[in-house]
């Protein structure tokens, strides 16, 4: 009697174990069975080997095709050469501004100047913190209403990105691939257009470091102590 009970118990235990094993197996395979992964040749583990996943997925993508990207990416452009305020008002009460060239065409350029301290008049109080470049590394001494590249070629204020890209190649490359500067609109250009910022939308060219900010939105969870600066 006792022997047969032992057998019964063992069989039941084995059955339980088998059940658990099946459950583990099914859990492992369930994600695949879900259809999300199995239905298409998608990379299961993209960070490990992205290049391999590209090979696997290119066939799928080719049917969508580049030609279908009918909408364009618009990069915002700066308004043009800056105008400088004069503290004067015209007859209509509008502020009078002048072009850079208004003053600079009559003055001799200081090729050495690298700081804002020595600047006066319109430039007083300006902050400058942009590596070791001098003013005329970027500003065009021949025409102060435009900029110049390192090789001396003139470039318009509206094409400022060409200028920045000379030194900031990695950022430029990231930008071109949509990984710098953020975007608005559509990620999928077959469905709608995309807008992107230019360099000086976010970076002040004289103090290009991104400004500090004050957070305005915080989680207000119940029982979560606020402002534990050091916890």
């Amino acid at each position: 009697m006792a022997g047969s009970r032992g057998v019964i118990i063992s069989v039941m235990l084995l059955a339980m174990l088998a059940g658990a094993a099946v459950a583990v197996q099914l859990r492992a395979s369930s994600v695949v069975a879900d259809g999300a992964v199995a239905s298409e040749p998608t990379p299961n583990d993209p960070p490990a080997d992205p290049s391999a996943s590209q090979v696997a997925t290119s066939a799928v993508r080719s049917s969508r095709g580049e030609a279908q990207k009918t909408f364009s990416v618009t990069i915002r452009k700066p308004a043009g050469p800056p105008r400088v305020a004069t503290n004067l008002k015209d007859l209509h009460g509008e502020a009078v501004t002048v072009a850079c060239s208004t003053c600079h065409s009559t003055r001799s350029p200081n090729l050495q100047n690298k700081t804002s301290q020595s600047l006066d008049e319109f430039h007083s109080g300006m902050k400058f913190s942009h590596g070791t470049v001098s003013c005329l590394s970027c500003h065009n001494a021949a025409d102060y209403d435009s900029l110049q590249l390192a090789d001396g070629h003139r470039v318009e204020f509206t094409d400022v990105m060409t200028l920045c890209g000379q030194c900031h190649g990695p950022q430029m490359k990231d930008f071109e691939h949509g990984v710098h500067g953020g975007l608005n609109g559509y990620w999928d250009l077959s469905r709608g257009p995309q807008q992107k910022n230019n360099c000086v939308d976010c970076h002040n060219p004289h103090t290009p470091q991104f400004p500090k900010m004050q957070p305005t939105f915080k989680p207000k969870d119940r029982f979560l102590e606020q402002s534990r600066s050091e916890h």
Binding site: P43, R61, G181, Y186, W187, C202
Partner: peptide, 23 residues
């Protein structure tokens, strides 16, 4: 086809979103 709201809102451009199947 539109970008997610958090990506559009990010002022630092730290957020990148897209299609893993598009090389």
């Amino acid at each position: 086809g539109r970008a997610p709201a958090c990506q559009e809102a990010c002022p630092t451009g730290a957020r990148v979103f897209g299609d893993l199947n598009d090389p």
